[in-house]
């Protein structure tokens, strides 16, 4: 179906649904040809008869002809999405937002810090960086990922794949372990202080997770010596149009849907604290 008008979604069938945790599912849908995106961008997903909501794209543009969205069941749209089956129709509009400044990251060492579903946008960039055509353009890769319990870790098959690679360091942590958990136990910011023991020159940190985790992770990163400009994070805000018109994602002189969702901590510092 052709996509006409900037507000009209194009309808696509869901190709595959992966159950990540008890309340997170990953939806794979075919990528329309015109849909050219960068890691960190988001799209509006429309569920007919229910509504529309913005979601970050968790697949990498290097991965080919599909798009993936990892979605936690929270509101009415996500609840409806979770009830869908492969083959059901959803609408897609996008991509929107600025995405990660990939060009500025070239040659840098990258520290990814994710919490819970916050790994979704990071995964897009991680897989972009790890793809054979881009891997050599970046330095070391360090991934720290935490969740509440081992059952809440998302992309488990992906984590397994990353663990097997030798060109990155993967560190997993949970707030609360169980008998079979052999990884670390502890909050992400605390674990970060323990495991990241290198001088931070040449490193850029990309943080995404729940607001409270972001807040304390940034504090830890600052203690480790990261400059505000070398900390990137993605903001969440209520959005409707995704096009910088409907006005509700306005924070200070920025519209999160157009100027974000990726902001450096430097920008965040001068923004009114209303996110």
């Amino acid at each position: 179906m052709p996509c006409e008008g900037i507000y009209t979604p194009c309808l696509l069938p869901i190709a595959e649904i992966v159950e990540e945790t008890r309340d997170i599912k990953t939806f794979r849908i075919p990528r329309p040809e015109h849909f050219v995106y960068r890691p960190g961008q988001f799209a509006e997903i429309f569920v007919p008869g229910v509504g529309e909501a913005p979601f970050s794209i968790s697949s990498s543009p290097t991965e080919g002809t599909f798009l993936e969205f990892s979605i936690k069941r929270i509101g009415s749209v996500t609840q409806a999405l979770h009830r869908l089956n492969p083959g059901d129709t959803v609408g897609l509009r996008g991509p929107y937002g600025n995405g990660f400044p990939v060009e500025e990251l070239l040659g840098k060492h990258l520290l990814f810090v994710g919490g819970g579903i916050g790994l979704a946008p990071l995964r897009s960039l991680i897989n972009y960086v790890l793809s054979p055509e881009h891997r050599l353009s970046f330095g070391d890769v360090f991934i720290l990922y935490g969740a509440r319990t081992p059952q809440d870790l998302v992309f488990r098959w992906e984590l397994e794949r990353w663990r097997k690679r030798e060109d990155l360091t993967l560190c997993l942590t949970v707030d609360e372990g169980n008998a079979s958990w052999e990884g670390r136990v502890g909050l992400v910011p605390n674990v970060l202080r323990e495991v990241f023991s290198f001088p931070c020159t040449g490193w850029v940190s990309i943080v995404c997770g729940p607001p409270i985790m972001i807040k304390f992770t940034i504090k830890a990163l600052r203690e480790l010596g990261f400059a505000p400009g070398d900390i990137l994070t993605t903001l969440e805000m209520k959005m409707k149009c995704g096009l910088g018109k409907c006005g509700r994602c306005n924070i200070g002189p920025y519209y999160v849907c157009q100027d974000g969702p990726v902001f450096s901590y430097e920008t965040l510092l001068e923004m009114p604290e209303e996110y």
């Binding site: 507000y7 008869g49 229910v50 509504g51 529309e52 409707k240 018109k245 409907c246 006005g247 509700r248």
Partner: peptide, 23 residues
Amino acid sequence: CFCFDLALEGRLRGAMIRTWDSC
């Protein structure tokens, strides 16, 4: 004031309605 809302009307058939919203 230009802020607007996009809100769906109807379930099996309906429309996406743009309507004014207020901060």
